[in-house]
Amino acid sequence: MFRLLKDKIYSKLMLVFTLASVSLVLLIGIGLYYKSLPLLHKLSWGTLLTSSEWRPLKGLFGFFPFIMGTLWVTAIAIIIALPLCLLTSFYITEYAPARIRKILIPFVNLLSGIPPVIFGVWGVLFIIPLIQNHIAPHFVEFSTGYSVLAGGVVLAVMIFPLIVSIVCEVLMTIPHELKNASLALGATKWETIKKVLLRKAKPGIIAATVLAISRAFGETIAVLMVCGNNVAVPHSVFDPGYPLPALIANNYGEMLSIPMYESALMFAALLLFIIILLFNIISRLILVRLERGLSE
């Protein structure tokens, strides 16, 4: 009898732990919303999102430059990473001999373990001089190298492992029969990839891309270190940008004496949270559906 009681007590205790940790999603959302209320009372969502006026001392908080900064670096990162990662995944799953595959996959894993700040240091030491001295001079008169392009490149490398591992996993679950049928009809390997695998793996590729976008959106330190952090809407890839997470990281704790500033930073966090929450839910649902479709 005592044992059953023990089981009951532990069961309830664990339920509490589970509910508490899951409700973190809600708690974070509510907490951030609550903290950004003062700002939302004063300015409407529309003004906050579309205004470019960032003058905290005058109480003007327009997030448009930061939103554009985030969009620029994310777009550059995806444009660079997606084709490279798709080609890599096809090579790993379809072409590479088992021996090479066994070497390649661990390296992708290792890349995913490197902390963001190391990517940032690499960006400062390698990408910035590269852009400043070798790439930018061909296109613009002067660039310090600290630009949305640098942020995009560093981010692209950071999301390589994410996209490659998901797409590889999706590709490996495609039935051999499909590939063999296409090959037996005389299609080359590339034609099979183009016409069979790409079509079949499309939901998985979309899920991986959406996940990668949300990762890129929230990445803070690495981007902050190479982006230039200038409050202005970037007009070319060589312009500096100021993404949302960098705004929070750079100013939190220092500027809190200015009225509404804390609220504004919490609003930035709330924006990030909402966007990333939506993107994550979408991609996870796609992936779960894929998995379920396979097991049935």
């Binding site: 589970t18 940790s21 899951v22 973190l24 999603v25 708690l27 974070i28 907490g31 951030l32 996940l211 949300s214 990762r215 959106f217 929230g218 990445e219 803070t220 997470p245 929070i248 990281a249 939190y252 930073l265 919490m266 966090a269 990030l272 949270f273 990333i276 929450l277 993107f279 994550n280 839910i281 996870r284 649902l285 779960v288």
Partner: peptide, 19 residues
Amino acid sequence: LRIAFDVLFGIPSIVYGAF
């Protein structure tokens, strides 16, 4: 629940820091 934890995993660390 699994999806919820996956979503929590995707929330950037700056948001955890702010929270």
